[in-house]
């Protein structure tokens, strides 16, 4: 029988075919006396397939969101990186991080919310909204999360444009 991560890859490939833009398994053994394989699965989708991909992932187990979404900027698009994990809490070194990258075109910064599948992601989506200016469609809560009210609304601190924007502070 195939190991779980391979099954997952097979399933994703057969379900999404061409729409799965990139797929990779990384492995990095940890431990000294009893080294353990630690695999992680990296998938890339366009934003229109992203919601479907998370829905598909949730068939294998409840996805847990590990970290707020990081972003990588290109000329024509912003990649949003969602680090999910599944099979957590089963014990026995079974957990598998599934890191899904969603490509969001720059001229239309929108992505559909996944709070309907992973309710715990709400805070992170709110953070993405204020930090990157990416509009989350159907998000249940549209308020800011962290940034102070005096921050100009057009300033999205985590965008490359604002790298070093706070410099010149100090006394």
């Amino acid at each position: 029988m195939l190991p779980l991560h391979d099954i997952l890859v097979e399933q994703f490939k057969s379900e999404f075919g061409e729409d799965l833009l990139h797929c990779e398994i990384r492995n990095r053994p940890e431990g000294v006396k009893r080294p353990r394989d630690q695999r992680s699965l990296w998938l890339t989708f366009h934003r229109r397939h992203f919601h479907m991909a998370v829905t598909f992932l949730s068939r294998f187990g409840a996805p847990h969101i590990s970290c707020p979404m990081a972003s990588r900027e290109y000329e024509d698009r912003i990649d949003l990186i969602y680090p999910f994990t599944i099979y957590g809490g089963t014990g026995n070194y079974m957990e598998l991080p599934v890191i899904i990258t969603a490509q969001v075109p720059r001229d239309d910064l929108r992505i559909r919310t996944v709070t309907d599948i992973v309710p715990g992601i709400l805070f992170m989506e709110r953070e993405t909204r204020e930090m990157l200016g990416i509009d989350i469609e159907d998000i249940p809560d549209e308020r800011r999360l962290f940034t102070p009210g005096n921050l100009p609304p057009e300033m999205k601190p985590m965008l490359e444009t604002y790298r070093g924007a706070g410099r010149g502070g100090g006394r």
Binding site: R34, R36, G88, G89, G91, Y93, E95, P97
Partner: peptide
């Protein structure tokens, strides 16, 4: 530490 261990935890 058990699900996805690092450091000495796998030991």
């Amino acid at each position: 530490r058990i699900d996805y261990p690092c450091n000495a935890y796998p030991d």
